[in-house]
Write a protein that binds this DNA or RNA. Structure first.
Lengths: 355, 355
DNA sequence: ATGTTTTAAGATAGCGTTACCATTATGGCT
DNA sequence: AGCCATAATGGTAACGCTATCTTAAAACAT
């Protein structure tokens, strides 16, 4: 009846505003929002148009009050590289509150009893689970989840979409392409003798990044030298060792690409200890664009992996799948990365041989 | 009328259950919950008893639906030591969803334009702000907030409660006592030549930890040697430098206490590089008990600072202050720390001089 | 064509709380 | 004692949404 009888000043559109605009009943709008069956496509479109036009977003409080069972999403994390977790939580926190889902966050040491922890989570009556790395590749956990019929979305796995089981949902970036772009960038600067620090070999994303590095080299016709590849584990500590090893080479690289920011930061530390200036004596590039990359000096040139956005996407996918009554095929989502150029790269000091 | 007409099976007690149990109207209960005036103490007690007995907790969804303006708490963070943020977010996330407050998290580089960012947050219509370190001591930001009448709670500051302005709320641990306990612990093990790596000198908590170290030494009568104190910044990198310096000493320490885990981890790395075993050749202790302390090997003996709980407490204090109509004096909250003994400490190998 | 099932849409009644107004005790003054 | 201001309570209507039931329309079978 009345245009606006709201007790608070807020003028956020409600479901009845949408219903009026679309010329349907309020229940129909509710059905569209919740992706329920038995709505004619034409009607659905009309409603969706009205929603878009009014910029309507359902009020989560009302929703859960009205009995839409509160959904609870578990997040199981082990120790990812420092800095990853906070970014990830930031995104999770944000989206969870926006979508009114309750997050149950649980830590578990990997290799230890991750299956038990997962089982505990399931027993706790969780509606779905989000798995950031490195747990996103814990086969035992995934199998358990599949068995229990609990949907899971894995984040930042290196496994290609087409190689994943049908039931899996994933959010990721194209690690291979990103590493390739970074390598090309460094070659464009003039580097030819490029060191590479690998990530944890247990994670497929590490392999993808390495592949990208090799691919770029090959594409440009730079011969591959195995001694320029050092193993790493994504930890700062492993980066220290890898950097020492690369810089101890008879003919050391003029640029080092690390598979993440932590190891890149370690490389910078080693270079400085040896009196090498970064970037004029050595170019160092990271990967992930965690807070660390702008905390150290010089700030790292790195690949921006939109960790917070990935977390947001994961929560959203999960919530959608859980809420919608009629099952839809689970999705993969490939987000965009970007190369962020900061102060840790430059052309090599002396023109490398054959230039 | 009916005992339970609920549509869902949930049997969580509601406000009317409490009202019935206390023999008052539902409105009176609401008033008690919200700490409103005009409730006779006797009545309040009756209601509180009923609440306790039924283990009642208000339904946040209903609350916010019914018009209790959705409260929004800002959190302003700069780059704290790695690992701190994720713990902190974990606690924040948890409590925020439990209390149904919306968190607006904003990052800002310190020293740069923190006041602008704070101003922006205020303009965005925030009801309160939480400041973890290092921003908890940014005087300019605090002044701005005070001026704007926006309540703030600072977390993990080293400023003693009695030295804080009246209006301030704070959650902290007794850094001085914790450091003192850690130092005593190491001395009990038999160490007398003990190195100390300071934290960022801009933060008062660093001074408190240093004071605790000095106090313990003095209490036991161990002479203080200035060269055993190295400056640090809470970063891994600064820990590397400090450790090198301490171990380069003509008569190096048999134990090193770092003001946080990051620097302790760095110390372990330096020791290993030099072929020293931890703990048999060198005892290393951290502070904070971040995830890092169990990630490295050997796992660190450290002071457990309940970061997540502190975050939870901060959110709760904020929510309480904002929601309650009749102002109550803002509070300080001192949480308990604890010494966690893991594998990085041991008795010194050779009995130190004069033992 | 007619009846019967299926599908699409609407009506209505809560969900648990607070806002707002009405009502009833309480105490302080003449 | 009587009256009024005020403090302490209670009643009721939202808040924005979904469950559930009902009705109307469409699809199907006979």
């Amino acid at each position: 009846m009345s245009i606006r009888t709201s007790r608070r000043g807020s003028s956020a559109p409600t479901i009845s505003d949408v219903a009026r605009a679309a010329g349907v009943s309020l229940m129909t709008v509710s059905r569209v929002i919740n992706n329920e069956a038995n709505v004619r496509p034409a009607t659905r479109e009309k409603v969706e148009a009205a929603i878009a036009q009014l910029n309507y977003a359902p009020n989560p409080a009302a929703r859960s009050l009205a009995g839409a069972a509160q959904i609870r999403i578990g997040m199981l994390y082990s120790n990812p590289s420092q800095g990853f977790l906070s970014e990830f939580l930031l995104g999770t926190l944000d989206q969870a509150s926006r979508l009114d889902v309750q997050m149950v966050v649980e830590k578990c040491e990997i290799g230890d009893h991750e299956v038990e922890v997962a089982r505990h989570l399931i027993a706790g009556g969780i509606d779905g689970v989000i798995l950031p790395p490195p747990l996103c590749e814990a086969e035992a956990v995934l199998a358990l989840l599949r068995e229990a019929g609990v949907p899971a979305v894995v984040v930042a796995t290196g496994v290609a979409p087409q190689e994943m089981p049908e039931s899996a949902m994933a959010v990721q970036i194209d690690d291979r392409a990103a590493a390739e772009e970074m390598t090309r960038h460094v070659m464009t600067l003039g580097h030819r003798r490029i060191g590479f620090i690998c990530g944890n070999p247990n994670l497929t994303a590490s392999a993808r990044r390495y592949e990208g590095f090799r691919a770029a080299l090959e594409a440009v016709g730079v011969p591959f030298d195995e001694e320029l590849v050092a193993p790493g584990l994504y930890t700062y500590r492993s980066g220290l060792d890898a950097a020492e090893r690369l810089l101890d080479l008879a003919e050391p690289p003029t640029a080092i690409l690390a598979s993440n920011d932590d190891m890149a930061a370690a490389t910078v530390a080693v270079a400085h200890r040896r009196g090498l200036d970064v970037p004029s004596d050595l170019t160092v590039c990271g990967f992930d664009d965690t807070t660390l990359s702008t905390t150290i000096w010089p700030e790292l040139t790195t690949i921006h992996q939109p960790i917070a956005d990935m977390a947001r996407a994961a929560v959203e996918m999960m919530a959608t799948v859980i809420r919608q009554k009629n099952a839809e095929p689970p999705a993969h989502r490939m987000l965009d990365y970007s190369l962020i150029r900061r102060q840790s790269d430059a052309a090599p000091r002396r023109r490398p041989r054959g230039f």
